[in-house]
Nucleic acid binder design. Structure first.
Lengths: 248, 248
DNA sequence: CGAATGCTTGACTGCGGTCAAACGATGTGG
DNA sequence: CCACATCGTTTGACCGCAGTCAAGCATTCG
């Protein structure tokens, strides 16, 4: 009998096995080691789920957001210009939060909209944990902080894409980005990963027109770098995509 | 005799009058009320100045930056693509910092280059203040935090510009942004404000080519929205610029 | 089954990039 | 002091990536 098996009998597993860990928890756990109590706190949050459908407004913007944790589906932070043009600032996927990190107050001033059906939970306890560093939930606090740093890193990558890359490069880089994020949350399988966005949404994120997004996706598919079916995507050659994206 | 005058005699002025306050201090003081001790701490930092010329590397990137406070001149955070294309992520002006805010660790992973001649100072004391919230320097800590929030806000504005605005709109918005920043630092006079950037630098910031930056600046000048001379800029009609920029 | 939504394609246009050359300002060494 | 080099700005000609317009398909849904 393996020692691991003995361990498992003596004390309850401090952290649930990844197999049945929900994506949001899995993402947080990938950012910093979490104790059993910390797992439990997040689970508590996730107990009462609110489900909204695509297009719903999760946060109107203009004020600081109430703390929420995304459990399933995608949302996006977006800004609208006076004449109706829109720019998506970033996507929120399972495990991502709004209104939790004090350092993201400015980010939380922009509107958040559900891009697909979204399950979310009240994340007030997480906001408390993030605020004061003296609790027993230091691992969780670090995970939240780390989540914010990653979001900032993605913003910078996106800035470079929009400023200096063409449609082809932008799309390649963005796909890699999404893959990496969903992989952390355990949402990437051999059959690919969920990509619940219309080409219009993608256009608003990549700073392109819908028509050109379509052309670009087709090119990627033609070249065997992207497969799309039933809202799922597969990237058969990620290293090639990375070359195209200039490792951004 | 006014009570203020009495106050002034009894204890030394807690905060120097703005008239002779150097720009960096003035910016910080505009972000949060600072005590005399806090002023003094910053002054201490600013005692030993290091001067570098345009083009110098203030921070090579790839690692967390050593804390520094910009006292004079402009620097920029920039990223370079494998093929040489460059994107400037943001400018650092008097009162701005690198390597100080823990929440900006990712930002501080990119290279920082002097755009003009730059005077900077060791900001390690500020990094300490920013880190622990229990010191007597709470106002300064808040100013540093606020500075970071503003930088994030500017990143988001820039993202929208690059994603959804044309050259004319981008330039207008960027000029307003610079004006607002320098105004906080007390660097805007009737004769305008310093704009120590070549058109090539501007191109790398706005995601345009040098030639097109030139054309765009000329258009703004032709329309009486911008005056440029000897490295200084004046914006005769800021409300018009704001319309063009879509208030971004 | 029609209506709505999203995807796809083609034709045309235009903003902004590229290339090239000239010009002005500044600086440097003979 | 001038010849020359360098750097930044300016202008013109041309081109191409991506936007716009418009129509036709494909799916989904009531």
């Amino acid at each position: 009998m393996l020692t691991q098996d003995i361990d498992r009998r003596i004390r309850p597993a401090p952290a649930p096995r990844t197999v049945d860990t929900p994506p949001a928890l899995r993402l947080l756990a990938s950012l910093a080691p979490l104790s059993g109590a910390e797992f439990e706190l997040v689970r508590q949050c996730a107990r009462r789920v609110e489900r909204v459908q695509a297009g719903s407004i999760l946060h109107p913007g203009g004020e600081v957001a109430t703390p929420r944790l995304i459990l399933a589906g995608w949302a996006c932070r977006m800004r609208t210009l006076p004449d109706g043009r829109r720019q998506i600032l970033g996507f929120l996927m399972p495990g991502d939060m709004i209104g939790v990190r004090p350092g993201s107050r400015r980010l939380d001033m922009d509107a958040v909209t559900a891009v697909s059906r979204v399950d979310s939970a009240d994340a007030s306890p997480l906001a408390v944990v993030a605020e004061d560093g003296t609790t027993a939930y230091r691992g969780l606090a670090r995970a939240i902080e780390s989540s914010g740093e990653l979001e900032l890193a993605r913003l910078l990558d996106q800035l470079v894409r929009l400023g200096r890359q063409n449609a082809y490069e932008r799309t390649a880089g963005w796909l890699l980005d999404v893959h990496a994020r969903l992989d952390r949350a355990g949402l990437v399988e051999k059959a690919g990963f969920p990509l619940p966005v219309t080409q219009e949404v993608l256009a608003d994120a990549l700073g392109l027109s819908v028509v050109h997004v379509n052309r670009t996706l087709q090119q990627l598919r033609r070249e065997g770098l992207l497969q799309l079916q039933a809202g799922r995507a597969t990237l058969p050659d990620r290293s090639r995509l990375a070359e195209i994206a200039g490792r951004v």
